[in-house]
């Protein structure tokens, strides 16, 4: 019990995730900067930002609902950290796992978006309200392709547990290339989930200032930003665990290094994607997700079902 609590709090739980999330943010920013031929921030920039924000005053708007307003950042942070416990990172086994944990992870990763929506909606500012609406609209667009993309490997592996899935794919490594469409779909949907260009519509700064976060400041904003950073790491870990599960369970040190490399690779792809696109309009985003992304995810399922029928 004590070991588990230690694991939850320090490693690979809360503390490790926080530090890794900051490093991931730095990597994302420096890569983005290098793609744009800029120098980029120094290594401690995310830490400095976080400390600065935590030291600042929290301002709750007068007409906002203080309870919901203050709860939402913590909820977002809590849910993403909880989600990380079910993802096998450098071992075949996650911290916790049971049959059906994929569904739990996907739903836990939805909670941040819902909390952005509620936080924005209850801060009662014009920009935040519009940002909140966009948050929710966008959720409906990317969630289905993301879920379908993660579902298809599960069908192939015939299990609803992520840990068992990685075991299965480690034994059938040659099946991995067949999931390539799903990988692409999941990556793009992850961009939408993390609200990064071209899907940063809910917080499009030139249109609606900062979207749902317009009224947030100080500690609450710091928690939100931390939640997004951790969400990026957890999302990248999820994609790595589902689509790039090779090398797990060999050796803890090797596995750990591989895990870091995989996450960095996913972050690299995310940064690359966000540096080459313009932000879409919300209705263009819906069009894209339903016209191209969802059918692609369906195609992946069809591929998986056929594979399963023919080969296994």
């Amino acid at each position: 019990m004590a070991v588990q609590i230690l694991e939850i709090i320090i490693f690979p739980g809360f503390l490790f995730l926080t530090v890794f999330a900051m490093i991931a943010e730095y990597l994302d920013r420096i890569l983005y900067a290098r793609f744009q031929n800029r120098k980029g921030p120094p290594w401690f920039q995310p830490f400095a930002d976080f400390i600065k924000l935590v030291a600042k005053e929290d301002i709750v708007p007068e007409c906002a609902n203080p309870f919901v307003f203050k709860l939402m950042p913590i909820l977002a942070l809590a849910s993403v950290i909880t989600a990380s416990f079910y993802i096998p990172m450098w071992d075949n086994k996650a911290l916790f796992s049971f049959e059906g944990d994929i569904i739990v992870i996907v739903y836990l990763l939805t909670i941040p978006t819902i909390s952005f929506f509620l936080g924005g909606w209850y801060s009662r500012s014009l920009y935040a309200t519009i940002g909140a609406m966009r948050n929710l609209t966008q959720l409906f667009a990317y969630e289905v392709p993301l879920f379908l993309a993660i579902l298809s490997p599960a069908i192939l592996a015939h299990t609803w547990s992520l840990s068992e899935m990685t075991v299965f794919f480690n034994n059938h490594l040659w099946l991995l290339p067949f999931n390539i469409i799903g990988f692409a779909v999941a990556l793009i949907a992850l961009l939408g989930k993390l609200e990064k260009v071209p899907f940063d519509i809910p917080e499009a700064e030139t249109e609606i200032v900062a979207g749902s976060f317009t009224e947030y400041s100080g500690r609450l904003l710091a928690f939100f930003r931390m939640a997004i950073d951790i969400e990026m790491v957890v999302g990248a870990s999820l994609v790595a665990a589902v689509f790039l599960p090779f090398g797990l369970g060999l050796n803890p040190v090797l596995g750990f290094i591989l895990y870091i490399l995989k996450v960095v690779f996913v972050i690299f792809l995310l940064a690359l994607l966000r540096s080459v696109f313009a932000r879409l309009r919300i209705e263009q985003m819906m069009d894209f997700c339903w016209k191209y992304l969802a059918p692609a995810a369906f195609l992946q399922i069809v591929v998986c079902v056929i594979l399963k029928g023919v080969l296994l």
């Binding site: 031929n37 260009v197 540096s275 080459v276 696109f277 313009a278």
Partner: peptide, 16 residues
């Protein structure tokens, strides 16, 4: 224009 449509890479390149 690049910045207004969220295309920051275009902004950085053209300003460079």
């Amino acid at each position: 224009a690049g910045h207004e449509i969220g295309f920051d890479t275009l902004l950085m390149y053209s300003w460079r």
